[in-house]
Amino acid sequence: MIGPTHELLPEATNPQPGRIVFLNGASSSGKSTVAEELLRTLDGAWYHLAVDHYHRARSRHDWSEEEFLPIFQRTVRGFHRVVAGMASAGNDVVVDHILGERWRVVDCLETFAGLPVYLVGVHCALPELERREQARGNRTIGRAALQFPIVHQDLRYDVEVHTDQQTAQDSAAQIAARLSKPPTAFEQLRAAGPSRS
């Protein structure tokens, strides 16, 4: 049993950075399902961090769009720093996110500098996204259609999965196989510079 008298272990004070498996895809594309399958099958301790959980944590108010935008952007930037902090402390993390705007990509490239990030494109055809959105009943209708043309724009990936064509198990296996080699997508994006407006 862990109690207050235990000292901080040496291996906890200066660890190797943890890996970040960064799932990017539109709302209802299956990121959370793939993330949970990864946690079930990958070796070691992995943590699933989803940006949606942080948006839910905010208090509810009737903000105008002008009032809400900086709150929203601070939340997303804060989420990036939570992910970076977990990985910097040596934890392996599966991230569930939507890179729908250039500032998000730029902030990730800056915040995750020096960390091993495997950028994963989670693809799904628009008709299936819309079907899932309707079926779930807890999604804003039309959000997936708005995100669909921009969420993968100008990005490069270490691995890409298609959740309308393969199971979560197959997607997770494909991602897990890629972890045997160093990631390259974030470095390529840094070199190219994201061109999205």
Results as ranks from 00 to 15, higher is better:
residue 1 M to N: 10
residue 2 I to M: 11
residue 2 I to L: 14
residue 6 H to L: 13
residue 10 P to Y: 02
residue 10 P to F: 08
residue 10 P to C: 08
residue 13 T to E: 14
residue 14 N to M: 13
residue 15 P to I: 10
residue 17 P to V: 05
residue 18 G to M: 12
residue 21 V to G: 02
residue 24 N to T: 13
residue 25 G to V: 11
residue 29 S to W: 04
residue 37 E to T: 11
residue 38 L to S: 01
residue 39 L to W: 01
residue 41 T to G: 06
residue 42 L to C: 09
residue 42 L to H: 04
residue 43 D to I: 06
residue 44 G to N: 11
residue 44 G to W: 13
residue 45 A to L: 14
residue 45 A to Y: 12
residue 45 A to W: 10
residue 45 A to S: 14
residue 48 H to F: 02
residue 50 A to S: 15
residue 51 V to A: 14
residue 52 D to M: 00
residue 52 D to A: 01
residue 54 Y to K: 08
residue 55 H to F: 15
residue 57 A to H: 10
residue 58 R to T: 03
residue 60 R to T: 14
residue 61 H to A: 15
residue 63 W to A: 05
residue 63 W to K: 01
residue 63 W to G: 05
residue 65 E to Y: 01
residue 66 E to L: 13
residue 71 I to T: 00
residue 71 I to F: 07
residue 74 R to E: 11
residue 75 T to S: 09
residue 75 T to R: 05
residue 76 V to S: 07
residue 77 R to T: 09
residue 81 R to L: 02
residue 83 V to T: 15
residue 83 V to G: 03
residue 85 G to V: 01
residue 86 M to L: 15
residue 87 A to R: 03
residue 87 A to L: 03
residue 88 S to A: 13
residue 92 D to K: 07
residue 93 V to G: 07
residue 95 V to L: 06
residue 96 D to E: 12
residue 96 D to W: 04
residue 96 D to V: 10
residue 97 H to C: 12
residue 100 G to N: 15
residue 101 E to T: 04
residue 102 R to S: 13
residue 102 R to D: 11
residue 105 V to P: 02
residue 108 C to Q: 02
residue 109 L to V: 00
residue 110 E to D: 13
residue 111 T to I: 07
residue 112 F to S: 00
residue 112 F to P: 04
residue 113 A to M: 07
residue 114 G to C: 10
residue 115 L to Q: 08
residue 115 L to N: 07
residue 116 P to C: 05
residue 119 L to A: 15
residue 121 G to C: 02
residue 122 V to R: 00
residue 122 V to D: 04
residue 124 C to K: 09
residue 127 P to I: 06
residue 128 E to G: 00
residue 128 E to P: 02
residue 128 E to F: 02
residue 128 E to W: 01
residue 130 E to D: 05
residue 130 E to V: 07
residue 132 R to A: 01
residue 134 Q to D: 10
residue 146 L to E: 14
residue 147 Q to P: 08
residue 148 F to V: 02
residue 148 F to W: 14
residue 148 F to S: 13
residue 149 P to Q: 11
residue 150 I to D: 08
residue 151 V to Y: 12
residue 152 H to S: 01
residue 153 Q to L: 12
residue 154 D to F: 04
residue 155 L to W: 01
residue 158 D to S: 03
residue 159 V to T: 05
residue 164 D to T: 03
residue 164 D to A: 09
residue 164 D to S: 11
residue 166 Q to I: 10
residue 167 T to H: 04
residue 170 D to V: 11
residue 170 D to L: 13
residue 171 S to T: 08
residue 172 A to C: 08
residue 173 A to L: 12
residue 173 A to C: 09
residue 173 A to V: 09
residue 174 Q to C: 15
residue 176 A to P: 03
residue 176 A to N: 05
residue 177 A to P: 00
residue 177 A to S: 11
residue 179 L to Q: 02
residue 179 L to F: 01
residue 179 L to R: 04
residue 181 K to T: 13
residue 181 K to N: 11
residue 183 P to L: 13
residue 183 P to T: 12
residue 184 T to M: 05
residue 184 T to A: 08
residue 187 E to K: 08
residue 193 G to P: 03
residue 194 P to Y: 07
residue 194 P to W: 10
residue 194 P to D: 15
residue 195 S to N: 09
residue 196 R to I: 12
